[in-house]
Nucleic acid binder design. Structure first.
Lengths: 146, 146
DNA sequence: TCTTCATGGACAAGTTGCTTGTCCATATGG
DNA sequence: CCATATGGACAAGCAACTTGTCCATGAAGA
């Protein structure tokens, strides 16, 4: 009956744990100058066609905040800004080789972090859970509202 | 196969959504001067016997940060500091009537936020999920590592 | 009992990752 | 063309943390 509260708290704790674990693994791979939020930026940029404003929306922050994040990633050599082919105002974001490497590292880390869940639930129930999550979690900015 | 990444991202998104929804409901009940983190502080304080240092550990922040949070809650009339019966250094934290009201509001909000999940999964599978979460999520500070 | 170390808490200052506010150049639609 | 919207840059401000330091009290060993 009191599952509701437990559920919320546990989901919170789980998400914190996943982020922390993925971040730890990525750091350990040599990307010590990256924060968790950067991984979500990479995820969006790697899809292609992203501008700073797109990134801002994806991360759920102001475009100024996104611009600062992009500036940092450019300075550290993970991201490059290309001129936009059809819009002289905009700059298309792309990943450098280091950016792609970091993205791959984050992918691997995420896989590793989820292994206990795959094993505990079994593939079938795990897939069901992912399906439920996909169905019930409205698309929105990837960001902790704290 | 690529469920791993999706799983992590979805859990993140879900936790953000839950926090946001609970916070919105609590605000709407008239507690507009509370932030999401305060709810977790209330949860710990309501158990009784909590000191500022206990709270710091529970929230995963430094004790200075916890002290600031407590100071704020005291100033806003949600929390009171009692002398500790067996330790002249420590102060026991307690909730005022307003603090209890906020805690009840947060409880209700959490229940409401979880309703879609109960309905979508059914009680049986929902309970299973909570059990899995309890089993697989190591106890740790309730805090978004971002 | 005395000494030593650990702990709860307070005070002060610094850092950071965001925000709001403002501006410009370019695009878009009437 | 002109009015409005949009991508982006620059600047300043802020809130929630951090580190650093200190003191009073408690706990444990010689």
């Amino acid at each position: 009956m009191d599952d509701a509260l437990a559920f919320s708290a546990l989901v919170l704790a789980l998400s914190g744990q996943l982020v922390q674990e993925i971040h730890a693994r990525v750091s350990q791979q040599g990307f010590e100058d990256l924060r968790p939020a950067h991984g979500f930026a990479f995820a969006r940029i790697s899809l292609g066609g992203a501008t700073t404003a797109d990134l801002a929306e994806h991360l759920g922050v102001t475009k100024q905040a996104a611009a600062q994040l992009v500036e940092e990633l450019v300075r550290k050599g993970y991201v490059v800004r290309h001129p936009h082919p059809h819009d002289a105002r905009a700059r298309l974001l792309g990943l450098t080789e280091a950016g792609w490497a970091a993205t791959r590292a984050a992918d691997q880390a995420a896989r590793a972090a989820v292994v206990p869940w795959r094993e505990a639930l079994g593939e079938a129930r795990f897939s069901e859970l992912v399906a439920d999550l996909t169905r019930l979690t409205p698309p929105g900015p990837i960001r902790p509202v704290w």
